[in-house]
Structure formats: C-alpha cells, structure tokens
Design a protein around this nucleic acid. Structure first.
Lengths: 249, 249
DNA sequence: GTGAATCCGTGTCCGGCGGACACAGTTATT
DNA sequence: AATAACTGTGTCCGCCGGACACGGATTCAC
C-alpha cells in the first residue's frame, strides 16, 4: 500500500490506543504552548474532505492544509491515519436520530432505525470504505447499536440474538448503501454500471439464463430497483425475526 | 490517496474497459515479441500476494516482482491497479462449488450456496476490501449470482425479487466474513477486539445498558458467537423468504 | 523573577506508491 | 531487406505515510 505503515505494535495495543482516542478523556498537557487543534476539529476537517472528494482524498497533508497546519502537527493529536479515520467515522455517524418514546413496536422501531442508518450512509458514502474489517467502535457507533438492541428489549430473544439481529440489519443497510453509493454526485455511476452489465448480458447471456431473465424482467429504472431491493430485504429480515418471536411465544 | 490515480475517463468508459478486460476476448497482437505474461498469470500472482500479506501489500511493484518482471510491464496487460484488483477478485472466486442436480429445495440450495460463499471469503479475506462500492462483475462472480437466482427458479418470486434475495444473502455473508476476517493468521484479532470492547463497556456501560446486558449475557467464545450470528441471520433471511413464498401460494 | 522542564508546530528526509513517457530490442508483414 | 508494430525496461514525477531533530512558546518550581 501507499502506507509506509508503521508495523510495530500490531493488534491489541493498536486497538487499545484507538479506544483511548475515541473514548477519551484526552490527557491535558500542563506546560507548553497552547494547542491550536483538538480531535473534534480534526475529525470534522477529515469528514469535510471525505464528503467532498471521497475517502481517497483524505490524506494527512490534505486534512492538515484544511486546518492551516503542517501535516506533522496532526501527529501530535493522532497516532496515524487509521486512527484519524476512526475518529471521522464516529464524527460522521453523529448525530443520532431523535429518540422516540420507547414503544413495544419493535418492528417499526427497527425499520425506522435501519432507514435512518441508510440515510447516514447516503450522506457519507465513504463510510463504507472506512468501516471494513474488524474495528474499534466509537461512542456514537455504539450508541447506534444500543438503539437497535434496545428496540428488541421486550421480546423473547436472548442477548446474543438481539446483537445478531442488529448485525443482520446493519449488513443489509451496508449492502444497499453500497449499491447506491456515488449515485448522487457521480451523476449515476450506478446507471452506467447497469448499462455496461446489460451489454455483457447481451453478449454472454446464454451462460447466465436465470440472471438474464431476472435482469430483463426487472428492467425498471435503477433507482426504483434499489428502493425495491431495500424494502424487500428489510421486510424479509423483519419477517424472519417475527417468525422466531412468534415461535417463542 | 497514494494513487497518482489517473483521473481522466471516469465512469462509464472505465467500466467498459474493465468489462472488456474481464470478459475478453483479449486482442492478440500480430507483430512484436512474444508476450511473457497473460492475464490469468497476473491475476494468480496478485491473489498469491494478497493471500499471503493482505490487499495492502498488493502493488504493481510487488506483483511484478512476483512475476520476475518490471512493474511497467504489467501496464501492457492491465490499464491500472483497479483493473488488476478486479481480475484478482474474479480469479479468487473460482472455482464455483460443484453443481448439485437442480432440486426444488430452494432453501437448502441457498443455505449451501451461502455457506460456500462464506468459505470463499474466509479463504481470501482481502475480498472484502476489494469488493466495496459499485463494481463491474466478472464471469465467475456472475456465475455465483446465477446459482443463487436459479435456486429460486420454481418459486412464485418475481425476477427482481430473486435478485434482491441473492443480494440480501450476499450482504449477510459479507457481514459475517467481515466479523471473522483475520481471525485465522492474526491469532484472534477478533478476540482482541472483543477484549478491548469489553473494557470499554466496563468503563462506559451505563450509557449502553441494552448492549452491555446483551454482551455479557452472551459471553461465550468469540468464535462460537460468530457461528451463532451466522446461523441466526441465515435462518432469519430464509424464514423471511419462506413467509413471502407461502403468502404467494 | 528566573531558570528549567515540557510541549508545541515546523522543516527535512526517507522509502514506496501509481503512473507517464521515451527507448532499444524483437517479431511478422511487405 | 525495409518497415511497422509491439515488447519489456529505465527514468522521472508528484504524492503518500511516517521518523526525527529543531527553535519557539508556555508554565512550573524555586
């Protein structure tokens, strides 16, 4: 990779350091010059760059210049780029949607939760790239998870199952966010793909009869297809949960 | 990014070029020296590097040296790194699992399909990073999709719904593959995260009561928890599909 | 009040990255 | 034999993440 990535302290130490950064409190220096930056400002600057030009445009240099500062100054606050991205993720996931009064309607709550999360990914498409692999969760991300798990509080599901349900929903949100990523500014990168894939199927469709049939039978606008996929998956998951809950009662 | 990434021909042209590369046929030069490489060898070399040291270690230089060749030689075969990765993805997804005789048991077929796909992601954890965002699918990837869609052939689902179901399952596979990524060689990067997250919850658990309860109630080994999450999500999705299919009959 | 300890942001340097381009050597056509 | 096409190579560029030494600012102990 481009990363002259420091390779010492791999694994647990790294995660612990990230946790300290995300969960604070930050140690306040007693002596020395005033600090010109703080983690929140740095995170916001990174988010601004990523929102405007994608995660690929986020470099130490770029974020530093956004803050009128040398890139090495950032290293006084953040151990490395990975941690910067972790900060950006938690910053971009805020704020949480307004909290409804806790109702026993777990299904409606989860549906709304997933919808809000999907919008969040839509506002910050780079979140997809920034959240691959096992990561340390920040306070905001954990608060999102808390909402989903809490929505299942009155059900006969076990603790592990509630977590699993939240993970399952998150996966669907990610999948759909991915399918619609860059559909906004890119002027329909998705439609382009659709067109190119259509061409491929025209040439090699005989090897993929089921896909070809399904693809052409559903030759609606890509955006509408995306909405349908979202609703379809969401309802399938919620139906599956309902089946289990009904079994337990 | 590190990529001095060429920024011309964005979007459709790029996708079309990738499609030509993935779907062939490759134009055979009439004159000139014999070619020492071919796309399959290049893809294999890339996969070998990624398997051994992760996608981050895959650079033109690294892949070229693996083939005893200068990096610029690769550019005679591949327009850029993105296309190289696309080739690697399709190469790593092969071979498909052996084809059973088509049975009407869509549920069992889909479960087996998802399981095979999960194993595929387990063998090549870097596939997760390599398959974010809207991409061009290669022949092998499309063949995987074909299998899933074909499994639903006898059902009352529409074409669009069959595609949506496959997408839904793929999302769950990705989520779980992600949770278990690097759990092998890293000696349990996942267990480390589990431990660190436990520490965080010990300090800030009062702000996340539902998660804390669920987390500690399910204080089993991370690996077992992962298996449970897999089965849970898979069965929820299949139950959801079954509900819909039953409604239609 | 003053010296020392501490921490700030900067400048410079490194190896590695993706990619452009000119070049000499090899090959099939004419 | 001349030519046109194509090969892999070497060199160059700007950018990346990161290490490290430095001078100036700030605050503490005395």
């Amino acid at each position: 990779m481009a990363e002259g990535t420091r390779d010492g302290d791999s694994g647990e130490a790294r995660h612990a350091a990230t946790a300290r950064l995300l969960w604070g409190p930050q140690p306040q220096p007693a002596r020395g010059p005033r600090r010109t930056l703080d983690l929140a400002r740095i995170a916001r600057a990174g988010v601004a760059v990523a929102d405007a030009e994608g995660l690929a445009a986020v470099s130490m240099q770029r974020v530093a210049s956004q803050l009128d500062v040398t890139k090495m100054a950032l290293y006084r606050y953040v151990p490395g780029k990975a941690e910067l991205v972790a900060l950006m993720v938690d910053a971009a996931l805020a704020p949480l949607p307004p909290e409804d009064e806790p109702r026993p309607d777990w299904r409606g709550q989860l549906a709304a939760w997933a919808q809000h999360l999907l919008h969040g990914f839509g506002r910050h498409p780079w979140l997809l790239d920034a959240t691959v692999g096992p990561r340390m969760m920040g306070p905001v991300e954990l608060a999102w998870l808390e909402r989903a798990v809490a929505a299942l509080d009155g059900t006969p599901l076990t603790g592990a199952e509630r977590l699993d349900a939240a993970v399952l929903l998150t996966g669907h949100v990610r999948t759909l966010a991915q399918q619609g990523a860059a559909a906004g500014p890119g002027g329909g990168a998705e439609a382009q793909l659709h067109a190119v894939l259509g061409g491929v199927l025209r040439d090699h469709g005989d090897r993929f009869p089921a896909v070809t049939t399904a693809f052409h039978a559903a030759a609606t606008a890509p955006a509408a297809a995306r909405d349908q996929a979202w609703e379809f998956g969401l309802h399938r998951i919620l139906d599956g949960l309902e089946t289990l809950i009904a079994e337990r009662s």
